[in-house]
């Protein structure tokens, strides 16, 4: 029957109309690749433009024009910028980030260990923060403008208003120093057991959770509230459903897209923004590695860290976009 209707003048449907979901996902993927490439250019250019010079920092007092020239030649800094960029990019594509200028170690190897540590910390914080934030968001919609909502709001606002290093020091003061129930510093090392690891990172995890919780919770609340006035929420109420069921079953699925987006943004923040927290807790992650490299102008390390942070950011946002697209029943089930 539908065939005869189509024969009546409408042209054959393009792949875009037949598979809207796949097309959109493919578009996002391509876009992410382009973006990553653009970021690599920016990072390289930015590092180039930094004031100061590795050779003179490294040599310190013994810097003479000849020794500086020697080191520059050894590191290949005398070659044109474009050549160096494509050299670097070629290595990066194969997973080789070059050699650290300061330690002469392979950057990839170092980054590998550090990234694992950072992801462990961020992932653990995310496992706690995301479900907690969404539950609190739904709770505060359920109790909107009443006491529980206000309490949740005030506490989360307070947490977001304090800088993370301050929260970190507060937690250290109370839980590690005064009560002695947590460990500090939160340094993990190879060969540490899983449970021990979790115990060690309790405080930095708590700090990160507190920092990202409020944003996600408030966005969840706002996103759900904005669909609460929809006609189908009235339908749910007139069906005699309980308010909690109406929120969880009828409002939340329609507020998924903005919630997914804010969750992804915060996950990215967890990975990228842990720099300060890692330094406070002496945690051997990417953040600390990058900070150390910046102080000695160890450019291959800075570039590698920058690019990885950017890649995480782009990847998470791409995932969020794709999930938000998949969450839309109109795209998942085309007519």
């Amino acid at each position: 029957m539908s065939n005869s209707a189509e024969a009546g003048g409408t042209p054959a449907r393009s792949p875009r109309e037949r598979f809207p979901l796949l097309t959109l996902i493919f578009e996002r993927f391509l876009l992410s690749l382009v973006l990553l490439f653009a970021v690599s250019v920016l990072i390289f250019a930015g590092v180039e433009a930094l004031p100061g010079d590795f050779a003179s920092t490294y040599l310190g007092q013994s810097a003479t024009p000849e020794t500086i020239a020697n080191i520059r030649a050894e590191l290949g800094l005398d070659r044109p910028v474009v050549t160096r960029y494509f050299d670097w990019l070629g290595g990066v594509v194969q997973g080789d980030f070059g050699t650290s200028w300061a330690s002469r170690n392979s950057v990839s190897e170092q980054v590998g260990k550090r990234l694992g540590n950072s992801l462990f910390l961020a992932g653990f914080a995310a496992i706690i923060a995301v479900p907690l934030a969404i539950c609190l968001g739904m709770l505060s919609v359920h109790f909107r403008d009443r006491m529980p909502d206000k309490i949740i709001n005030v506490i989360s606002l307070a947490a977001i208003s304090l800088p993370e290093f301050f929260i970190g020091y507060l937690l250290i003061l109370y839980f590690a120093v005064n009560f002695g129930i947590a460990t500090f510093p939160a340094t993990v090392y190879e060969g540490m057991g899983f449970l021990e690891r979790i115990q060690t990172i309790a405080l930095p995890t708590a700090t990160l959770v507190l920092v990202v919780l409020a944003h996600m919770m408030r966005m969840t609340r706002a996103a759900i509230l904005s669909v609460m006035s929809s006609a189908y929420m009235e339908t749910a109420e007139l069906k005699g459903l309980s308010s909690w069921r109406a929120i969880v079953k009828h409002a939340a699925p329609n507020a998924l897209a903005p919630i997914i987006n804010v969750v992804a943004l915060n996950l990215a923040y967890l990975v990228v923004g842990v720099v300060v927290v890692e330094v406070v807790f002496v945690y051997p992650g990417m953040g600390q590695y990058m900070v150390d490299a910046v102080t000695v102008r160890d450019m291959p390390v800075v570039q590698a860290c920058g690019l990885i942070f950017a890649a995480v950011y782009i990847l998470l946002n791409m995932l969020a976009d794709i999930l938000a697209i998949v969450a839309n029943p109109r795209l998942r089930h085309p007519r």
Binding site: S230, A231, Y232, E234, T235, A236, L238, K239, K249, H250, P253, N254, P329, R330
Partner: peptide, 16 residues
């Protein structure tokens, strides 16, 4: 007691 709304298009939840 049940209710039938004017705009069923808006009154049905698009997600289910």
């Amino acid at each position: 007691i049940c209710y039938v709304a004017q705009s069923a298009a808006a009154a049905f939840n698009p997600a289910h």
